[in-house]
Design a protein around this nucleic acid. Structure first.
Lengths: 329, 329
DNA sequence: CTGTTAGCGCGTTCAA
DNA sequence: TTGAACGCGCTAACAG
C-alpha cells in the first residue's frame, strides 16, 4: 500500500504539500501541483479514506434505515429506488453510507442503537417509511444526537428534516381526477395502515375532497395489503361508484376483485410503481419519484451534518394514468 | 467523543491495557479487567472502529455489487433478499459492507474501478447476477486483486468462489415434474437472456431431460421479460403440451397469455418469488433461497479474505407448487 | 507558497 | 502483568 509519504518523497516535497494538492487547497504553485500529480500517477497512489477520516475527524457516515418487515412486492421496488437514489447521491456528495435493515437493530433499545451507530461512525440517518409504533427510532429522533432525515413522516425538529410529497394534496388530486372524470358520488376509500404517518394524511385529503364535492365516503382499513383490499372491494364496491386506494398494491387487489365480480368501477392508486403492469387495466395513480426523494434526503442529511437546521421539504408529485402495455416492456 | 484515553485514566491504567481488555488479550488480571470494564460502562465508551481499523491495518470491507439495470419487479424482490442475507451475515461476522450498484461504476474501466474500491478500503466483492458482457467485472475477477464471490455464475479461480444452486439440475427437476405429472411430449421452453450465465445452464438441464424422455422441445429467448414470454406463449403455446420457463416472471407472462387464449397448459417457473401471488393460478417452480445464498456468499468472502482458496459452493434447491392464496397474505 | 510539527484513536512491540 | 512509546496514513495549524 503506497502512502502519501512515498509520494512526497518521489515528488520531492513535504507530506503536507501532497495532502494539500490532494484536497484542492489554494496556495499551491502550478508547478509543484504538477510534480505531485505526476508522482501520484507514477506510484499509482490511492489515498486511504480511513486515515483521512480519522485525521480530519470527519466521521459522519449516513445510515439508510429500511424496514423489510413491511414486506410486499411493491415495497421492494420502492426500496430499491430509495437505495439507488441515496447511493448515487452519496457518491456525488462524497458521503459514506451504510445500509441498515431494521431487522439488524431489532430488539435493541434506543441506547443500544445509539451505541451501535456511534461505533460505526454514523452521524446521520435517513429513515424510510417509519411507523408510528417504532418507539426506538422515534426516540432517536427526539434525542437529536444524530442528524435525521425522515422520508414520508411529518417529523421536524432542530436536527430532523422531513422529506416527501404532500400526501394530503396528492390524495386529493388523484381522487378528484378519478371522481370528476366519471361523475362519481359514492366513494369506497381503502386506507393504509393505522401505524403509518401517511395514512392519515391521505385520508385527510380524501375527506377534504368529499366535503368540497359533497361525496359520500366509506372508509375501510386495507393495511396496504393487496388481499385486504381485495376483500374490502368484494364486500363494499358493488354499490359504490369508484374505489380510491391509498396505495397501488391495494388498487391492484381492488381491481382484481372488481374483475372477479364482473363489474366496472374506476380505481385509483398511489405511488406509481411499475408493478402496476400486472393489473392489465388502466387506472389513475399518484406518481412519487422515489429516486428523487431519496436523493434529496441525502442532500438534506448533509446539510444537517454541516450544521443546518431541520425543516420540511415537499417534493413534487403528479397524476398519471397507467396502462398494462406501457409498463411491461 | 470519549476515547480510550479517558477510559484508561478513569480505570487508573495505561491505554494499552484498555486496548488489551477490549480485544480480549490474555495476560490481564481479572481485577484490572473488571476495573476497565467498569470504567467503560461508566463513561459510556464506544470504541472508534475507524481508528481501530487504521491502527490494526485491518481494512478489508466487502462490496456487494448489484445490477439494477436488469430491472424487473421480480428482480427487486430478489435483490432485497440478497441484501438482507448479506447484511445480516456481515453483522454477524463483523464485516464492513458497502452496497454498490453498477450504475455507480458505470463508465469506469477495470483500473478505475480497482482504484475506487481500494480508496474505499474494499478488499472483497460479492457480485450478484453478473452478465457475460460485463467485461469490467470479468477483468476484476481475472486480476485476482480482490477476493471475489460470484453468485449465479460458474467462475472460480484462486481468489474467486462461485455460490449458487445447480441451475442445470434444478431446471431438469422442475421440468421433469411438470412434464411427468401431465404426460407432456411437446414442450415450449422459454429461455432467459443470452448474456446470463444461468441461461445456458438451465437450457442444458432442459435438453438433458428432453433427450432422456424423448421430448420435442421448442426453445425461444424470453430474455427474462414478462412481455417477451407472453408474446412467445401467444405464438407457440397452442400446439405444445406445456410451457417451461427459465424464470418466474416469464412464467407469469406465459400463464397470462394462456388465460387470454383460453387454453390450459401446465407452466413452470424458476425462482420461487412471491410475486407469483399475482398469477392467480398455480404452477411448479424452483425455489431458490436467495437469503441463504447471499448469507453463504458473505461467509465465503470472509474465507477468501482470510487466505482461503476459491471454489464452488452448490446451494440446495427445491421444487414447490405455488398458489395464489398461499402467498398474498 | 512550502515545510515542520502535532495530533486523530487505537494496536502493538518491548521494557520494566 | 502492565505501561511507555511508536506508528498507522493523513489533516491542520503554524512557522518560515
Amino acid at each position: 500500500m503506497v502512502s502519501i509519504k512515498e509520494v512526497a518523497k518521489r515528488a520531492g516535497v513535504a507530506i503536507s504539500t501532497v495532502s494539500k494538492v490532494l484536497n484542492g487547497y489554494p496556495n499551491i504553485s502550478e508547478e509543484t501541483k504538477v510534480r505531485v500529480n505526476e508522482a501520484i500517477r507514477e506510484l499509482n497512489y490511492i489515498p486511504n479514506s480511513i486515515a483521512s477520516a480519522l485525521s480530519s475527524k470527519q466521521f459522519g457516515r449516513i445510515a439508510l434505515i429500511l424496514d423489510p418487515k413491511r414486506q410486499t412486492q411493491a415495497i421492494d421496488q420502492v426500496f430499491m429506488q430509495y437505495l439507488l437514489g441515496a447511493l448515487d447521491k452519496a457518491k456525488e456528495l462524497n458521503l459514506e453510507v451504510v445500509t441498515i435493515f431494521t431487522s439488524m437493530i431489532a430488539g435493541m433499545d434506543a441506547e443500544e442503537v445509539t451505541r451501535y451507530f456511534l461505533s460505526q461512525s454514523i452521524a446521520g440517518v435517513v429513515i424510510y417509511g417509519m411507523s408510528k409504533e417504532d418507539k426506538v427510532l422515534q426516540k432517536l429522533i427526539e434525542e437529536q444526537r444524530f442528524a435525521c432525515v425522515v422520508v414520508d413522516a411529518p417529523i421536524v425538529n432542530a436536527r430532523t428534516t422531513a422529506v416527501g410529497v404532500d400526501h394530503e394534496q396528492a390524495q386529493y388530486d388523484v381522487a378528484k381526477k378519478t371522481i370528476t372524470d366519471d361523475g362519481c358520488k359514492r366513494v369506497l376509500y381503502i386506507a393504509g395502515r393505522k401505524d403509518g404517518y401517511v395514512t392519515e394524511q391521505r385520508l385527510k385529503g380524501m375527506k377534504r375532497l368529499a366535503e368540497e364535492m359533497n361525496l359520500s365516503v366509506l372508509v375501510r382499513q386495507g393495511d396496504f395489503s393487496e388481499l385486504a383490499a381485495r376483500k374490502i372491494a368484494l364486500k363494499y364496491a358493488r354499490n359504490k361508484d369508484c374505489v380510491v386506494c391509498a396505495s397501488d398494491l391495494m388498487a391492484i387487489g381492488a381491481m382484481n376483485a372488481l374483475i372477479d365480480m364482473d363489474i366496472f368501477r374506476p380505481v385509483c392508486g398511489f405511488d406509481g410503481i411499475t408493478l402496476m403492469g400486472y393489473v392489465g387495466k388502466q387506472m389513475n395513480t399518484i406518481r412519487q419519484d422515489f429516486y428523487a426523494i431519496s436523493s434529496r434526503a441525502l442532500v438534506e442529511a448533509k446539510l444537517l451534518l454541516d450544521g443546518g437546521t431541520g425543516h420540511s421539504v415537499v417534493m413534487p408529485h403528479s397524476i398519471v394514468k397507467m396502462y398494462y402495455k406501457d409498463i411491461i416492456c
